[in-house]
Nucleic acid binder design. Structure first.
Length: 491
RNA sequence: GGCGCCGUACCCAAGUGGUUAAGGGAGCAGUCUGCAAAACUGCGAUGCAGCGGUUCGACCCCGCUCGGCGCCUCCA
């Protein structure tokens, strides 16, 4: 039974969807005016894993993730570039898809855009005005927070407290400083849509209410996003949605922690962020390998806690994965017929499967799950040294693959070996970096060298054998000798 | 000023009101090996920021202190 920490109640709660076999979840996507950074990657990954795990346990998941494609920052960026907003949003939606593909984040069931839901948004604003929860001033419409009694229940703030600390200039036309815009009249040159209150555009919060209700219904199961969205964004969504329908909106509110650099939140304003594409560009490794490194790193801490991003943390993820893929390489080699150790391995696999469920059920405790994988790796390695049948090898590999698939790990048939380098000073330039040099030999050429070395070893010509090994090593290829005198190698 | 989070070995990171505080990395010492690599084995917190309190018993519950961070403005 899955338990999820619900921000609304401040507790871990057993998860029961509204409908027995279907989970409906909505996650706040990105505002498309710039490239995504590793913090966006974490959020996307956390909910990707949550969705995969729900499916793994047998649910059907309707997963909606929006694009905010009307926004001040988009307009600003468009003006800077002297192009229309559409150009900006199209560019960064495409960039978003490229980045997510690299990370192996699955596409959502629905990926609505705010600009394509104007009718729903306007309807919702109209309802709120009719119910007396919103008011119109000139061409703007504001939500009146005092009219929604439960305002603050998600972020656990009181209106008075907020008022005391308000640091923003208050618009005099608002009835309460915390009232927020549902509809903004447009200035000349800004994108605008016709509405009962004149031409304008929606506020940020209302679009998520409108789109989630449109695609998931008035009440649905999970609403997710980064910690920073708890207030005001999600608080406001609740006020609008519950205010309009009189029903509960989302039932479980899930928020992921930040990625930090040197213990500080990664953000545009601090300038301490790494974009997803820059990480992939700087990586010495293929997209597939870098993807797993990043996923392993991002899942090495429970999703609610902070996570420090560093060169070292990526190395550690890489090293951990090296160990798994070394094992997989051994498992791919032919084994014996059925042997006694097979039974133990089967048992260990079963045990891991159970631990995996327990770990994931506990609010997606991925660090524990990773530790369980490590334990199984160690057990299988031991069994392997005592001999393991071909069949048992295959079932071990299959188990890693199927459980790992929930986290997006262990999916590769080929792995590479070595270190990742992050800092720009040592960024490999094409041609002379070790990572590129390894491409100078084709697999067949490497195999020929390895075969030659095996022959040299047979004739006790260790000098020649060592020469070959060091030559290959300089090309990023590592040889491991097996007990039977033959060798395996890896890039 | 308000709300909230965090502080576990050299580093990363789980965890529990009560037998030995997961796992990984690094390190050291072994086994194996022509040497290496990998794998395996062993060592490694007498203590879980500090101080009080509750309790038969707390790292885990409560309070305070110190240190770090986040939100209250756009933010994953």
């Amino acid at each position: 039974m899955l338990s999820i920490y619900n921000t609304l109640t401040g507790k871990k709660e057993p998860f029961h969807p509204l409908q027995p076999t279907t989970v409906r979840m909505y996650v706040c996507g990105v505002t498309v005016y710039d490239y995504c950074h590793i913090g966006h990657a974490r959020s996307a990954l956390v909910f990707d894993v949550m969705r995969r795990y729900l499916e793994f346990t047998g649910y059907q998941v309707v997963f909606v993730k929006n694009f905010t494609d009307v926004d001040d920052k988009i307009i600003k960026r468009a003006n800077e570039r002297g192009v229309s907003c559409d150009v900006i949003t199209a560019e960064f939606i495409e960039a978003y898809y490229q980045d997510m593909r690299k990370l192996g984040i699955r596409r959502a069931t629905n990926e609505p855009k705010a600009t394509e839901h104007m009718a729903e948004i306007i309807d919702l604003v109209r309802t709120l005005i009719q119910k007396g929860l919103a008011y119109q001033v000139d061409g703007d419409v504001y939500f009146q927070v005092e009219k929604y009694q439960a305002y603050g229940r998600l972020s656990k703030r009181k209106l008075e407290d907020l008022q005391a600390g308000a640091r923003v200039e208050v618009d005099e036309r608002k009835r309460h400083p915390m009232d927020f815009a549902l509809w903004k009249s447009s200035k000349p040159g800004e994108p605008s849509w016709p509405s009962p209150w004149g031409p304008g555009r929606p506020g940020w919060h209302i679009e998520c209410s409108a789109m989630s209700m449109r695609h998931l219904g008035e009440t649905f199961d999970i609403h997710g996003g980064g910690m920073d969205l708890i207030f005001p964004h999600h608080e406001n969504e609740i006020a609008q949605s519950c205010g309009a329908t009189g029903k509960e909106f989302a039932r479980y509110w899930v928020h992921n922690g930040f990625v930090q650099i040197n213990q500080e939140k990664m953000s545009k304003s601090l300038g301490n962020f790494f974009t997803i594409r820059e990480i992939f560009e700087k990586s010495e490794w293929s997209v597939e390998v870098t993807r797993e490194i990043l996923r392993y790193f991002l899942l090495s801490t429970q999703y609610r806690g902070p996570l420090d991003f560093s060169d070292q943390s990526l190395r550690e993820a890489k090293n951990a994965l090296n160990g798994f893929y070394d094992l997989f390489k051994r498992l791919a080699e032919p084994g014996l017929g059925s042997v006694e150790t097979d039974g133990e391995t089967d048992m260990e696999i079963g045990f891991t499967r159970e631990s995996f469920r327990m770990g994931m059920d506990d609010d997606l405790n991925t660090p524990v799950v990773l530790a369980e994988f490590q334990r199984l790796k160690s057990e299988v390695n031991k069994s392997l040294s005592q001999g393991l049948s071909t069949e048992a090898r295959k079932s071990a590999r299959d188990e890693f693959r199927s459980l790992g698939n929930v986290l997006g790990l262990f999916q590769l048939d080929k792995w590479q070996f070595g270190l990742i380098r992050m800092d720009s000073e040592r960024r490999p330039s094409a041609g002379n970096a070790p990572g590129f040099a390894s491409t100078l030999f084709s697999d067949a050429e490497v195999q020929r060298k390895v075969d030659e070395r095996v022959e040299a070893k047979k004739t006790k010509d260790f000098k020649r054998a060592d020469e070959i090994r060091s030559e290959l090593k300089s090309h990023g290829i590592v040889i491991e000798d097996k007990p039977d005198g033959t060798s395996r190698w890896k890039r």
